[in-house]
Design a protein around this nucleic acid. Structure first.
Lengths: 245, 245
DNA sequence: AGTTTCGAACATCACTGATGTTCAATCACG
DNA sequence: CGTGATTGAACATCAGTGATGTTCGAAACT
């Protein structure tokens, strides 16, 4: 686990912690801890005060992109590979924001497809491809996440029709459907789903036990769920094809 | 001058050249030349054949972004600084693609503004800013240049009104107005100009003696031209404020 | 006023990317 | 079909960059 994440979690669990505590916890020097706190404060994870820092992470909010991106990479890669295998050459694909979908983007780099990613991270991963047609939606990028949101993003999606939408999420259950932490994200996801003929949700196991604030769609709107979990949680019963990566 | 540019120009001037020639010209090993040719071929600058490469650069086309970006940086920085000084805090700005405008973007990073850049390079330069409101237009990024074009870009621009447009170009003269190499770019520039109350053109000296294929607007559509050249070329007579950086 | 904390500046180190060298495989041409 | 030139993969080397630690003067609490 990276030191940044270690600090984030220690501060979150304790509410607030001193620089010296964090230094002895991580084994790094106090100067390094201060530099880390500066980075995390810039990301909005915590707030510094003289001598330490206090957490700003609320329950129900999401840790920032940079800290999630190397979480569980193995599972994400497997899920992404399974998703990529479901996509046929020549298709047009809208690709959601989030770390799992970013892995999907990397796998699509040399494919022959039309892709519209909903986050600038994925746009950057794909912008050097010479084989695929890249479409950028408009919008206001959310800091850190770089997910495109707002009326421009919705308008871009409404103007187009895709063969497939690949959607990530923060929570998924047969009961509560697909949920997201951010309200704006939720409406973008919904617009993406509406614009696509087929909807694939890419969901790692941890999301299947979680429900987030914003409801996006019921599971009946999904055609397939790709996950690394064993349990099914009633998804098949709801008429969704579950693919285990 | 970078070795890549040296190779590009030597091949362009000779039509085609051998690997050994390029190695002795640049002082690098043949292996390095081969790797360079691979890069340049991927950018569409030239075409490789066994033993050498032949140029693909047509007269009237533009060398790729990566080769222009560290050309004349001093002049670009000065122009960019003068442009940034013309923009007041709180304004909304649409920022054209191109290397000069990318320098402007870097200077706007910590300002309090609303900015919509028309190229992904500038988007990336600004996406880490916490002070400004960043808007991304939709569109299809042109390879290399990463300038956003097409109906989505036009729609994004038509949906908004800006205080200021900062426009780069490939050619500018009192007689032929503002011109660009790429037709799609030209319509995006025109849409940006139409959506803005005030139009500033950022133009280095080399552009003032050049005219490109696509006509964008006459000089009368410009409010100010920021340049590093001494000569005026009849711009002032056409009613444009000329700022010499 | 005294003590603690902070951050700028420099030193150090690991790592990445660029370049060169070697050599087996491939290609073009006679 | 053979021969010599050309290519690119693999490894070695080196410089530049980024991360970390140390020091020390300045700033902030008590």
């Amino acid at each position: 686990m990276s030191r940044l994440k270690q600090i984030t979690e220690a501060v979150r669990d304790a509410g607030s912690l001193g620089v010296a505590d964090l230094a002895s916890l991580t084994g790094a020097s106090e100067m390094t801890i201060r530099r880390d706190l500066e980075v995390l404060a810039a990301q909005g994870v915590l707030e510094r005060y003289r001598g330490g820092a206090r957490s700003l992470l609320l329950r129900g909010s999401e840790p920032p992109f940079a800290l999630r991106s190397d979480d569980n990479t193995a599972a994400k890669r497997r899920i992404a590979a399974a998703v990529a295998a479901l996509i046929a050459d020549g298709e047009s694909v809208v690709l959601d924001s989030g770390t799992t979908c970013l892995e999907v983007a990397r796998l699509l780099h040399d494919r022959r497809l039309t892709v519209m990613p909903l986050s600038l991270h994925a746009v950057n991963a794909l912008s050097s491809s010479s084989t695929l047609t890249l479409l950028v939606p408009g919008g206001r990028p959310r800091p850190g996440e770089l997910a495109l949101t707002g009326p421009l993003a919705l308008a871009s999606l409404q103007a187009l029709r895709f063969d497939t939408a690949v959607i990530g999420c923060c929570g998924l259950s047969a009961e509560h459907g697909l949920t997201a932490f951010d309200l704006e994200d939720a409406s973008v996801k919904r617009a993406a789903i509406t614009s696509a003929r087929r909807v694939i949700a890419a969901v790692d196991a941890s999301k299947l036990t979680r429900t987030a604030l914003a409801h996006v769609v019921p599971v009946s709107a999904l055609d397939a769920v790709v996950t690394d979990a064993e349990g099914d949680d009633g998804l098949t019963a709801a008429g969704v094809a579950v693919v285990t990566a």
